[in-house]
Amino acid sequence: MPGPPFPSRPPGGETAALVTQVVDELARRLAGENVPAPEDPPDIAGDARHHALVRLRVLAGVKQAVRHLEDQAAHAAAAGGAGYPEIGRAVSMSRQGARRRWPGLVTNSTHLSAPHRPHPGARDS
Rank of each mutant, 00 (worst) to 15 (best):
G3P: 12
G3V: 01
G3F: 08
P4R: 05
F6G: 10
P7H: 13
P7D: 07
P7C: 04
S8M: 06
S8V: 03
R9H: 11
R9L: 10
P10K: 10
G12V: 00
G13E: 08
T15C: 13
T15L: 12
A17C: 09
L18P: 07
T20W: 15
Q21L: 11
V22A: 10
V22L: 09
V23M: 08
D24Y: 10
D24S: 12
E25F: 07
L26H: 06
A27T: 00
A27V: 04
R29V: 12
A31E: 01
N34V: 11
N34M: 10
V35H: 09
P38Y: 04
E39Y: 08
E39D: 11
D40H: 05
D40G: 01
D40T: 04
P41E: 08
P42D: 02
D43E: 10
A45C: 01
A45T: 01
D47G: 00
D47L: 00
D47V: 00
A48H: 05
R49Y: 08
H51Y: 14
H51F: 15
A52N: 07
L53S: 07
V54N: 05
R55I: 00
R57F: 09
L59D: 08
L59Y: 14
A60H: 11
G61R: 10
V62P: 14
Q64P: 07
V66Q: 15
V66T: 14
E70K: 05
A73W: 13
A73E: 14
A74E: 04
A74V: 01
H75S: 09
A76T: 01
A76L: 14
A77K: 02
A78R: 02
A79P: 05
A82E: 12
G83R: 04
G83K: 01
G83H: 04
Y84F: 11
P85E: 08
P85A: 03
P85V: 01
I87S: 12
R89I: 00
R89P: 11
V91K: 14
S92F: 11
G97I: 00
A98G: 15
A98K: 03
R100G: 04
W102S: 08
W102Y: 13
G104F: 13
T107R: 13
T107W: 14
N108C: 09
T110K: 06
H111E: 09
H111N: 06
L112C: 08
L112M: 10
A114S: 12
P115V: 03
P115Q: 07
P115T: 04
R117A: 10
H119I: 01
R123Q: 15
R123I: 02
